[in-house]
Each structure stands twice: as C-alpha cells, then as structure tokens.
Design a protein around this nucleic acid. Structure first.
Lengths: 261, 261
DNA sequence: AAAAATAGTGTCAAAATATAGAACGCTGTG
DNA sequence: CACAGCGTTCTATATTTTGACACTATTTTT
C-alpha cells in the first residue's frame, strides 16, 4: 500500500475514480465512504459524487445496509477477464508447460469464481485419455482439489457460511457429502498445504493442488495436476508435490512482480 | 412513480476510461488504440488522451514495441486483490441465487431510499415473462410488499411523518389508497412479519417480502419473491415463505459478521 | 518500391463538468 | 439526551474535458 507517487499531483477525475476502486479492491470488507476517504483525503462532496458515478456504472455496489460500498458486477467481471487474459499469460504458460512436461500429466490453474472454481489456464499432455474440462469451465468446490483448497484458505466464519450454502452433491462414491467429514478434510488440507482429490469428482481421476498466493499470502489461484488413476498411482502423483510447489512459488513471484505486491 | 431511468448513456470521462479498460481486460492480446476504438467509436483525440492518462496511472502499459496497450501493474494489482477478497462479495449473490433457483422465480433485495424502495440486487429466472425493473430502480412504498414492510417496521411517529408525505397514488384496483385501510394492513404485516402484495402495484403480479435486519434487529433491507399470477398461485408462493425467511436470516448474519456485505 | 489507406499527434477555443467551501440534517453512540 | 461524525445540498468558480481540423507517421496494397 505504498502509493507514494512523487509525480505531479495533477487532479484528474480518472485518477480519483481509480484510487477509490483500488481502496475497495484492497479491502476485505465493504467500506463506508468515509472509511475510503481515510486514506484518500478527498473533499467530502467530491468523494461522494465519484462514488455515485462508480455505482451507476456498476463498478461499485451498495452493501445490504445501503451504507457500505463493495466491488460491483462490472468490476468483478473485468477482474476475472483480466486474470484470465493478462500479460502474465505468456510467462504463466511457460511455467505451466514446463511443469506439465516434467510431471507428464495435465496441469491447471483455477481461480475462485463465486461458489465454484473456474479453470483459467491449462497445459495438456499428449496422452489420448484426457480430462474433458475446457478452459473457462467451472467445477464445484466440495469435491475438487482446487475447490477444497480454496475453502480451506478461508477464515472459519467465511467458510462456515459458504459451506452452509453449498449443496454437497455426490459426484462419486468418494465425494464428501457429510459436512463434518468435509470439515475435517479441510482442516487437514489447511495444515498440510496440499489438497488431494481421490476420485471425488470423476471416477478414475486423481488430483493434487497447491495455492498460488497474492498479497498478504492470500490464495488467489490454485495450481493442480490431474491424472487418470490408470496411468499414475497416488504415490507417483505425490512424488511431484515439490515440483508443484516450486511452480506455484514461481507464479506467486510472478504476480508480485507484475503489480500484485 | 417508477423511476424508469429514461436517461441515456451520458458521456462521462470515467465511463470512457472504464470502457477502455473493459476492452483491454477482455482481450487476449495487446491491442492498438485503433483496435480498441473499433468497438467504442470515440473521437480519435479523445481516445488517445484517455489512454495516455490510463497509462500514466499505471492502469495500462505499452507493449514492447510501444504500439499496443495491455493491462498495467496497477490494474493487475487491483484485479488480484479483488479475487483474493472475493469470498464475502460472492456470498451475497450466492445466497440470492440459491434462493431464486429453489423458488423458481425472481428474487430481489431492496433498501429504503427516501420515500421509495430501491432495488439493489436481483436474481432473475429464465422465464420469458419477467418483471422489468432493473437493479437501481425505485418503487413506491404504499403499494409494494417491500415498501409496506418497511413502513410497518418504523416507529409510529416515523411512520406517520413519512405517510403524510406520501401520495397514495392508485396503481391498480387493489392499491391501498385509504390511509386507514393501509394502516390496518401495516399493522397486520407487523404482527405477521411477512408482507404480501396482491396486484397492488402491477396487475398479475404477486409478491411476498420479509425483512433483512441489521444491528438491534432493525430492518435495513428487504428480500422478496416476485411472480406473475399466471405462473404461481398465491398459495404456491406462500409455500416458499420458510425458504425466504431462512435466506433473510442468512443475509442478516452476513451483515452482523462482516460489517455490511 | 511507390501509392493509398489507415493510424497517431498537436493545437485550440468552447463547453461542460468537476471542484471544494460552508452550512445543514441525520444517525448512532456514549 | 447531547455530541460527534457522516452524508447531503447548494453554489460560484475555474479547471478539465472535448472534438473539429489539420498534419505527420506508419502500415498495407498494388
């Protein structure tokens, strides 16, 4: 949050709008206009005027009590689009490809998107038997390595509330459908920092996932290896955990260097 | 007085800046300014000026050849921050969506805004016949389930003062235009905790609403189901009251735990 | 390689919008 | 119940934004 721009403090409406959006994006909680202004120190009427404009544009929206502001649908849409397509993309693909080649199986990057995970990038192996999940598709949280990893990264309040809303639909015999067992699994994932999926989403499919972290060490994406059970045993997949973690660290560094710090 | 928002897209510099950012975020490849303008159709000097500003702000950056534009560090940073903090933001839409899916009809959240109610969020069903009330639009207090619920939640002094200002314009044959009948209706709503609207605002439209409460149990928003009479009878809608109340309780918990959502 | 088409830059005066001071009313809090 | 902080409204000022026009540079076509 070192926004010490020694540049000319030229007053531009775009600049003001952007600084407000930045503050909102950086906050974990919805903010009152006055709270936003704590760091910006704009004149009160100015602040409110700009916020109203942003709200009218769908970039911000009001919280339920009508008093706080949070990111609006358009802002969220832009962000997801950006993460999927951004300049990080080429470097990301390189890291991803190297990992996939070393491991010999399909590797994926996914981001949380509402109450599901969304695949934003993938490198596929040449094996004839592959996963049929195109980039852009969504998978549930409760029965995938990535989704469980995301759930395990939340605060306990957030997790409880989100879990309450999820329907734990059984996809296979191994799917966690008992909330308590799932909670225990998430706890284990949290302490182990590695998420494992053992035919919980699709039969014959194994998956392990680790976190790609952004500012403050928060999970902002997941990196995972998928493999059919016929080709790789559980132990064989597990041998690649260090590779996976190394690649995830590379991604985290990439994010930090391109603006995520 | 259905604030039908007849205003056309006003030219605002913020809006222009945002549409440029949207185009860049949606593109997989860096774009030339002229390519951005293909969809936006702005005057040339304007386009370049805004792009320069965005570049100076770190929201866009030039590609290596200096000719194309791509997302800048600050834009990326904002997006990553947003994804990392997305947990709360998505809970609200998740709860709303699940309710709407279970009920099978459009569900809305509205907040009191002066002498009207204002829709701040909605999840629409896929039915061809829908309510044409966009998010952000206003509806009167005296002839809508949400509005009556709000009125019923006020102290008698507040209510009297507000009612005096309202003109009880008849929208349909069922609209309460007699102050005494309305007062009785409000009393009934207060004791029942559920507000019902039976073609009082629009013909063929049914609606039920319950309260989302903030600190000290005060109403701070309403949650409602809207349905055309042709699709759902009064009894069928009423069957969903428990679902509605459960979801409203979730929202209230969300407010309590997160400072607003 | 030359010509034609398209893209980008600079200037400028008019228009419109943003600006921020002061004062006011509301709300929630102690 | 009074106080402090927040949000709102009003207004005069001036600053930024705007886009036509003309010109240069670059890319594409022939």
């Amino acid at each position: 949050m070192t926004d010490s721009d020694p540049r000319i403090e030229k007053t531009s409406s775009i600049q003001r709008a952007m600084s407000i959006l930045s503050v909102v994006a950086d906050s974990e909680l919805p903010l009152r206009p006055a709270e936003i202004n704590r760091t910006l120190q704009l004149p009160k009427p100015t602040l409110h005027r700009v916020c109203q404009k942003l709200e009218a544009e769908g970039l911000l929206q009001r919280s339920l009590d009508g008093k706080r502001l949070l990111a609006g649908p358009r802002f969220i849409k832009m962000s997801i689009g950006l993460i999927s397509n951004s300049a990080l993309r080429t470097e990301r693909s390189t890291i991803l490809r190297r990992l996939a080649e070393r491991v010999g199986e399909t590797c994926n990057i996914a981001v949380p998107d509402g109450d599901r995970m969304r695949y934003i990038d993938r490198y596929e192996t040449e094996w004839p038997l592959r996963l049929q999940l195109p980039v852009g598709s969504h998978v549930p949280l409760h029965c995938t390595a990535s989704g469980k990893l995301y759930l395990s990264s939340l605060t306990s309040t957030q997790r409880k509330r989100l879990l309450k809303k999820l329907s734990l639909i059984p996809q296979t015999k191994n799917t966690f459908i008992d909330p308590e067992l799932l909670a225990a699994e998430l706890k284990a994932i949290r302490s182990r920092k590695v998420s494992v999926e053992n035919e919980e989403f699709l039969y014959d499919m194994l998956c392990i996932a680790v976190a790609i972290t952004g500012p403050r060490g928060k999970l902002c994406a997941t990196l995972s290896i998928h493999a059919p059970k016929q080709r790789m045993s559980f132990e064989e997949v597990s041998e690649h955990i260090p590779d996976l973690q190394a690649a995830a660290a590379d991604f985290s560094a990439l994010i930090a260097s391109s603006g995520g710090a």
